[in-house]
């Protein structure tokens, strides 16, 4: 209609506005990229050095009389960390296997087993430990700090850390007997754990 009223010359977007727009876009894309990277990356990977962490232990499930687990105390030993919860059914399938493996290595003193009870309630957790006769160290993951450190995606997951504190193997899902197509047991759960731990002891 009356374009001439606006006599100001046609101007582009002011520089400061352009800078803000692009900065915002880049920032947003960066955040999404990092978030995406994180979600794609999954759990901590073998070869990663595991940061020191500590975990309070359930009474009756202490380690060497200490009511707190500190990873730093166990340099020079193989550390097996198992994440579980009392409401998790697959965890029950492997509970006995873990306990049996622990019994195998306990006398040597070269291997430490740690159960991390992921978002759970104490009475149910204790009932679970009792039900499966677990004797190795166990504690609640207060504030989900440890599970976030390992970026676990579910339970059960088991992490094997070598004597230098480097993660060497990650087991996603339970240790259950491997069966071939005829239904014969190819390798039982305990042996699967042994196959992972034994090379780390050398």
């Amino acid at each position: 209609m009356t374009e001439n009223i606006n006599t100001a010359p046609h101007r582009g977007v002011p520089l400061w506005a352009q800078i803000i727009i692009w900065a915002f876009l880049v920032g947003l894309l960066a955040i999404v990229a990092i978030g995406l990277n994180r979600s794609q990356q999954g759990t901590v990977q073998p070869g990663d050095k595991i940061k020191d962490f500590s975990l309070p232990l359930f009474s009756g499930y202490e380690l060497n009389g200490k009511s707190q687990f500190d990873l730093a105390d166990h340099r020079g030993k193989v550390v097996v960390i198992n994440f579980w919860a009392s409401w998790c059914k697959p965890c029950e399938q492997e509970a006995a296997n873990l306990e049996n493996a622990w019994k195998l290595y306990e006398p040597s003193g070269e291997v430490v087993f740690l159960g991390v009870d992921y978002v759970d309630t104490e009475p149910e957790a204790r009932a679970y430990l009792k039900k499966f006769g677990i004797t190795f160290a166990n504690g609640p993951d207060v504030g989900t700090k440890v599970s976030q450190l390992f970026r676990i995606k579910g339970v059960p997951e088991t992490y094997f850390i070598d004597k230098d504190g480097v993660l060497r193997y990650v087991q996603i899902g339970p240790f259950v007997d491997k069966v071939d197509s005829q239904g014969n047991v190819v390798m039982d759960g305990v042996s699967q754990i042994q196959v992972i731990i034994d090379p780390l002891l050398k």
Binding site: W87, C88, K89, P90, Q93, K153, G154, V155, P156, I172, G173, P174, V176
Partner: peptide
């Protein structure tokens, strides 16, 4: 054998 936590619960 392994299921996501949510599914499992």
């Amino acid at each position: 054998n392994y299921l996501r936590i949510t599914h499992y619960a």
